[in-house]
Design a protein around this nucleic acid. Structure first.
Lengths: 344, 344
DNA sequence: CTGAAAGCGCTTACAG
DNA sequence: CTGAAAGCGCTTACAG
């Protein structure tokens, strides 16, 4: 059973046709007589043949796989529920299209570049760019390497951005605005923000949205602490914000994990949540929905974004370059972590 | 810059040698004169050549990539911090060996089988089998397909298991025993267990270990609720256990997420943690370390397991079939979620 | 130590 | 609609 896998030649011989005909019967790129088609399929099935993907890749210079490199520290990847959900979403559309997903987790920039270079050596047809940074050089890099790419961002591309790589985006700003509205509506005036690493455009976009929303309400958006999406940073940022006389009455966190850690810290230092401190998260992890009280958060459809990104990339590979596509699943999920501020 | 990637022929021509020599210079499989070696490298560098992996794959019938299929519902993948940490660990050793990782996320068994079949069509050289189930058919399947495999389990293989696929295992039983010891030592006698899905051998192993440890202490291990690793199931199981007169004074959860959700539920229903209810988790997520109080859990070195699994698979691919290898990083991490039981 | 050539398993013009 | 053959870009015996 091992060893000698059947080749297209074996199938051709068994079916009494040439290799070309077998190929055509499977690809459908040219008509094949119904009768011989049947013979070919029967032969292939009885030999349990499936085309060798390396041979196909060499002949077509298409690998039928796309690449994804994640450049974050393992703790963060483990902590952030975005990645697995995003990947699951990709997979759903890739599997359907018979494509594979090659994944690379890297920790420094050299390794990142190396990963893309390996990709370009005929390992993948295209890539999805996540965690876009200010002045990100990856769009240029992948273009130079001849890889088609799509990138995921958290705001609509600016008119003047000369983005020649397709963009899939969410509008996080609106959701952050809604969160602030909710808080202000409940009576809060002293609201802080714990952001993600501001070198990421999505983290900066959420921070900017926070500033805008506060300003819009005539409030001072001057309490912003930069976190890094880990629980540790959420706790530390919360401590910095809350262990002082003029503590805020509400905190808007840039992700759920930081919010949960912060909430836990606040409680342990004697504050009631939400009575003394209201909190909101971002990205709506499963845990947040099953805490008591639940964490008000914003669901950004990580899986949907994965699916759309994959679909957009497939289209781009097919030569169909699209205008930026908006993923419209961003919605605020209200749970019990907001209350009117207590006097203190 | 696009289009015509240089081939080994271009390099050979530029260096004034044959393609065979270029190949040999890079692979080192046969000696090449220092002088011509230099010429070859110089030519390759100036042409920015790297070997096409599909051509290499076809010529050697080695793809230099390994496959991993994860067969869980997306919510669970997103919730469980094991997978990303495991993958990061794999990556570290794969990258070093110039290998790639192909990932598939599937939701039903047909898709799972299909994924392995695609793998076998020359997409990967070997696979890592996770989440082994009782009577798991994947070892047979992959063997039939001619894929080398290694599988990850949570207990030493039995003598009589005719395992011809290499095994990498942890000894979760000892850690569970330690947890129970800790609880019993603190004075608990009424201890419950919220398990993972018992069709998984790792979940069953933890459950069995719980039963054994309780029995060892002369306690009745009769309160076991089966969860599914999600926060939702952790909360529901906790409710079932705690909303009654004879509630346990401590709960041993099979993972951290269930423990955190359970803890939160218990608190919201008026119990103090740990004073009224002690809890322990499993797998030591980053969040658990930064909660207040922290969650006592067991670190099982997901990343180390990933690294060891990858290394073992590479060895197996090299023809080096090993005896089962124990990953010895399982250690109980004591934090503040255990206290002596309060009278009630 | 190096060259010339066959072969890996497909796809795709080119004829008919 | 189908056959015969070249080609994709490597590696690896086989000679020398």
């Amino acid at each position: 059973m091992h060893g000698a896998r059947p080749t297209i030649g074996d199938v051709a011989r068994a079916a009494g046709v040439t290799k070309g005909t077998v190929s055509l019967a499977y690809s459908g790129k040219r008509p094949v007589a119904e009768e011989t088609r049947r013979r070919v399929f029967a032969a292939a099935e009885s030999l349990r043949w499936t085309a060798s993907s390396s041979a196909q890749a060499l002949a077509t210079s298409r690998t039928s796989t796309i690449g994804l490199v994640i450049a974050r520290r393992p703790e963060i990847i483990a902590t952030d529920t975005f990645f697995p959900r995003f990947i699951a979403g990709c997979e759903a559309v890739l599997a359907e299209a018979g494509m594979g997903l090659m994944l690379n987790v890297v920790t420094d920039e050299d390794a990142e570049t190396a990963a893309y270079e390996r990709y370009a050596a005929g390992r993948v047809d295209g890539v999805i760019l996540l965690d876009v940074k200010q002045g990100d050089r990856r769009p240029d890099l992948v273009r130079e390497l001849g890889l088609t790419a799509v990138m995921l961002t958290a705001e609509a591309p600016h008119e003047d951005d000369p983005v020649d790589t397709p963009v899939v985006y969410t509008e996080d700003a609106a959701a952050v605005g809604e969160l602030v509205d909710l808080l202000v509506g409940a009576g809060h005036t002293s609201i802080a923000h714990v952001s993600g690493p501001l070198r990421y455009v999505h983290a900066a976009a959420r921070r900017d949205a926070f500033v805008d929303a506060m300003t819009h309400h005539g409030l001072r958006p001057d309490r912003i602490v930069e976190g890094d999406f880990t629980a540790a940073s959420g706790r530390d940022a919360t401590a910095a914000l809350v262990d002082r006389a003029d503590r805020p009455s509400a905190i808007v966190y840039a992700n759920d994990v930081m919010a949960i850690a912060g909430l836990s810290y606040a409680r342990s230092s004697g504050l009631r949540v939400p009575e003394d401190l209201s909190v909101t998260g971002f990205d709506d992890s499963e845990l947040s929905a099953h805490l008591s009280p639940g964490l008000t958060s914003v669901s950004t459809g990580a899986d949907v974004r994965g699916a759309v990104a994959a679909r957009t990339l497939l289209a781009a590979l097919g030569g169909d370059a699209r205008r930026p596509v908006l993923v419209d699943g961003t919605v605020v999920v209200r749970r019990g972590s907001i209350a009117p501020p207590s006097r203190h």
